[in-house]
Design a binder for these strands. Structure first.
Lengths: 351, 351
DNA sequence: TTGTACGCGTTATCAC
DNA sequence: GTGATAACGCGTACAA
């Protein structure tokens, strides 16, 4: 099957190539009737312009990219939808691309900029620290929306929107401490040194230290799972270990709601009640926390607001309307059914 | 900032363009030392080949595409990972692209074939019926993996892998009937006429008719939600309506596990027990069904097996090793905690 | 083993 | 308003 090109269309229409090009790209300098005719032929023949050729030649693309790190990001769909709305409002096109765990999102970005003549990039998720050499090579505006934390250095070379995981994590632990819990286990994530999981773990430690409560390493569990650390499966497995360890605790802080669901299941299977025997707290604020039984106490990230701000910030940067900004969004502690006062009976073994 | 091209690299190295090209593309006809030197310069300068130009020129691409319809497909991540493994085994590249609800996946495919010189396509999800004119234009092998049903016509023009939703749905309803339920409500999906949701609804009706049980329209609820019909939110809302309607029922069949979770929550809030008062059955077999309390009885789709077979089938087609196939995968009814015998007390209002 | 020259399909820049 | 024609950056015959 022969590929049909713009030349074929021009020949068929008895016009020049540029006229066809003008018709396709809604150029003003073209007779309406000519355009109608050309478009008609295009429809009949089923001609499809070759995007590689277009990208190669085009100078102005009105296109941005959204790079998503991690295929299982639970905020994925809502964030994308919000960004897309903003993009359409600005009459831009948008390409979305997943970045594998082992890939460097900056490399992917660099490649894509060349290929598609991008005007801007949004990075969703991923590491919160980057090679500044590579950062310097990105010659289009970009915004990191890590749902993580702020990189301290290079404040003037990029923008980002983030939740301060370190602080928010402390907020949750303080809440549990205020309820009277002193033996709080944590299900964290330890696959990458610079992940949000580590920040949340640090927040946990900080909160305990501030209250002068000893940090018991036997209460710290770190999921090691490259592919999908924040799974119910992993939460379940960790909680099983925790329960079997014989170490006393009255509350569990799972650093992701998915993990918390697994934890709840394990506790339930052990014949214990939530929150009467053990309190469980999550983090993220995703839908499942609202519909699970018991409903999950969690840190709810302002995903929608962040996504909207991220898109707006990027367009402001593209239009040269503003300098780089670093915006921290406060998250909300949502108190639901899965947490309560500690049960002294749970400490009988330990004393 | 000037874009650096292959010419610049050639000049810097004091070699010809083709030599650089050969170095990049691992061509055999090149001196090892020359190659080393070229690669070194490329690394130093941070040169990145322009993919648009490469795609334009290239004839053999060893690349396939995976088009995913619907951003919220719950099988998404596991399916992709399995396909990717197969693709890597064959030393192919893979591009993934999301297709919006309002887009036609065939149009997206047509465009992508031209742009990237694809060798094959996998369609994940989406409608199970397509414009045969457009199908004919796809001049590369493709496999639909609808997790839906088989299109009857054009058996020789394409391949697909599927679960027979019509039959599997009957399986679940028959199971509930065997438990003794006669008043079974269904939470279905009615946004598109040719969706899997409609097939599952038809299966429900068929099963009831086969047992000569009257179909009560008051027990049929159809979610109308373009963006994301299979959400917990929607299941919850529908179940609330059902409970408020005053119409008697002893079981609910939600045609997706996410819907079932919402249904469970609504029943729980109404002060009723699952399964003692009302049985709830789901469909899909996703992780949440295993970790929810109560654990969900569901139809578990053989997602992994399907994904693997889909990829293998595509490569066989590409290599001309086989004709088009239509493969139906049997799903498994997993009996868990959320279903049991009907509670006669629930029928008191009705008689 | 290496370099030169052409063409992939399109858009931008000119003349007309 | 329209049509030639020169790029865009790269791969690849073909010549060297």
């Amino acid at each position: 099957m022969e590929e049909i090109t713009i030349k074929d269309i021009a020949r068929r229409c008895g016009v020049g190539i540029s006229t066809v090009s003008r018709a396709i790209n809604n150029h003003p300098d073209i007779n309406t009737e000519t355009k109608q005719m050309v478009m008609q032929v295009i429809r009949e023949t089923g001609y499809i312009p070759n995007n590689s050729a277009r990208n190669l030649k085009r100078t102005d693309a009105r296109c941005i990219a959204v790079l998503i790190k991690g295929i299982t990001n639970p905020f994925f769909s809502s964030v994308i939808q919000i960004i897309e709305t903003q993009v359409q409002k600005k009459k831009y096109a948008m390409v979305m691309q997943h970045v594998e765990a082992y890939e460097d999102e900056l490399d992917v970005a660099l490649e894509l900029i060349k290929e598609k003549r991008l005007r801007g990039i949004i990075f969703l998720g991923g590491a919160y620290r980057h090679d500044s050499q590579k950062l310097a090579k990105l010659n289009v505006p970009f915004v990191f929306s890590t749902i993580g934390t702020v990189q301290d250095e290079g404040a003037k070379t990029y923008s980002n929107t983030a939740v301060d995981d370190y602080t928010e994590s402390q907020k949750m632990v303080n809440y549990l401490l205020d309820l009277g819990h002193k033996r709080i286990a944590i299900i964290a994530e330890g696959s990458a040194a610079e992940s949000v999981g580590q920040l949340r773990l640090e927040g946990y430690k900080k909160a305990l230290r501030d209250r002068e409560i000893e940090i018991d390493e036997r209460l710290i569990y770190e999921v090691k799972d490259q592919a999908d650390p924040y799974s119910m499966q992993n939460g379940y497995a960790m909680a099983k270990q925790l329960l079997a360890s014989g170490v006393d605790f009255t509350a569990v802080f799972a650093i992701a709601d998915f993990l918390a669901v697994g934890v709840c299941r394990a506790i339930h299977e052990a014949g214990l009640r939530i929150p009467e025997d053990i309190s469980v707290a999550g983090y993220d604020g995703i839908a499942i926390g609202e519909f699970y039984t018991p409903q999950l106490t969690t840190i709810k990230q302002p995903v929608e607001a962040m996504a909207e701000k991220t898109a707006k910030l990027l367009f402001n940067l593209i239009e040269g309307k503003c300098e780089h900004e670093h915006i921290i969004f406060p998250a909300e502690l949502v108190e639901r059914e899965s947490t309560g006062k500690p049960n002294p009976a749970m400490l009988s073994r330990h004393g």
